[in-house]
Design a protein around this nucleic acid. Structure first.
Lengths: 266, 266
DNA sequence: CGCGAACTTGAGGCGTGTCAACCCCTGTGG
DNA sequence: CCACAGGGGTTGACACGCCTCAAGTTCGCG
């Protein structure tokens, strides 16, 4: 039924921990005391295209004031915390969670390098979700006032922030479609394809994914129980769509995964 | 079990069609050829607080270029349409729908007077949802370039737009919590309370609501089938929480409705 | 080496979907 | 003025997808 090629790639696991590590040397913003967005490997994601030299200088001067490390399992901010800065992920991986006070939890999203976190706090001046690091991470701290001011001075920056927030809204609508109108298999397929897409955008392999989150967190995000997520992944493997080895997933038949979604997307 | 007071208010139905109509005369922006945001009854919702006289003039001069009527059942824009303007509802009621191409539909939100629509299109330059009028409506058309320019000139306007988009993100997260972590009764209760809240914010009665959407549309928004929505409303009525009369709902026990949510919210 | 967390897999139960009948209200045309 | 058609809503019986509960496995870590 399924073709076992690439199966060798799945073992041994420890040897593949570097799968998602960048392949070139990384300019270290912390080394120079002042953060240099213009030299950052993520500038194509974090900054709008087509900024002039002088504009880039202004960004370097005023945008990122500091770098903050967040250890695996620690929170960057909690629901209810006072809002005054946005956070752009430099390295690492986060989840955002709502309603964690005591009852049920709902994961509202997973964020990776280049993603912006914290815009949920702009409206009320208070954060509305917990942001929790799923691995040791580093984030660029951007004072909200600074990005406001920069947006007024540089129209491309203004447009860029609008686009980021717009994209988050569109993503949330896609999440609502998953949660409201799809079967378990469709939700998991959509989740994997979305993750694969985001990895490709960042220059990583779209077929080799290392999940940074547990089954329970995937389930919360998709409105399923962890057992259902596990069963669904097993079924996909049985159908030859992918190989599962703990948190590493090798997509062998992306077209087949998309086919699971037929009838929903269009 | 339930107390039948206010039952008389439910009949006859035709006599109550004016329930949600404003109680004062409405300044008509279309009468003066130029739209006057500064005189609009919705200015406390559409505009940031604390604008000076001269700033208000600038808003009047440059923000709203035209008014557009959308008949009941017609679309304001469709997914895939080119984006170039935002729409602020002046009168009426809309739903936004994703994935309507042919398969399943997911309602992503309901919008009423004062709500801004169309920000989903900023990112890709294309709208990602259909916006459909649930009753005869009128919307203020705001060219995106104009609101960008105004944001650069007037920091409160810039902040205002950011807050609106942030609020939409927070709302979407609440929707994800409903869809991913709640039982049918909890979803319906949360929906009614949210609607009640938005009506109060606009100065309407929070206990007398006239639903502008069908059961099927409520169900889509909540990830339920119309029969489940209907059954749940009937059960709430049997439990004395509210009275249902077609699309009119009288909330008689808001605390009881909130109690349905206990264990989820906190 | 042994413990615990994360994951997998199976069996059975429950909440919601499915299907269908019926009612109400509205609009239309004879 | 009434007959009729059609859309929206309600309610019931049954089916099914996912949840619940539980046992067993693998992996990581002290």
């Amino acid at each position: 039924m399924h073709s076992p090629h690439h199966l060798d790639e799945m073992l041994p696991r420890k040897a593949r921990l570097h799968l998602l590590v960048r392949d070139g040397p990384v300019p270290a913003p912390s080394s120079a005391r002042k953060v240099q967005c213009s030299a950052c490997h993520l500038r194509r994601i974090c900054l709008p295209a087509g900024l002039s030299e002088s504009e880039l200088e202004r960004v370097d001067d005023r945008l990122v004031t500091s770098l903050r490390k967040v250890a695996h399992g620690q929170t960057l901010f909690r629901a209810g915390d006072r809002f005054n800065a946005l956070f752009q992920i430099w390295t690492g991986f986060f989840k955002t969670v709502i309603g964690s006070s005591q009852g049920r939890e709902q994961v509202t999203g997973f964020q990776m390098a280049g993603d912006l976190m914290g815009v949920d706090g702009i409206d009320m001046g208070l954060h509305s979700v917990d942001a929790i690091a799923l691995e040791d991470s580093q984030v660029c701290v951007i004072a909200y006032e600074d990005i406001e001011a920069l947006g007024r001075e540089l129209p491309p920056m203004q447009r860029h922030l609008h686009r980021i927030m717009s994209r988050e809204i569109v993503n949330d609508h896609a999440a609502m479609l998953r949660l409201g109108s799809m079967f378990a298999e469709e939700r998991v397929a959509a989740f994997l394809l979305s993750l694969s897409d985001r990895l490709r955008t960042r220059g990583f392999s779209p077929s080799s994914l290392v999940l940074r989150m547990r089954r329970e967190e995937i389930g919360s995000y998709l409105g399923l129980k962890l057992e259902t997520v596990s069963r669904t992944l097993s079924k996909f493997q049985a159908n030859g769509l992918l190989f599962v080895c703990q948190r590493q997933i090798q997509i062998t038949d992306p077209a087949g995964l998309k086919h699971v979604l037929d009838g929903v997307t269009a």
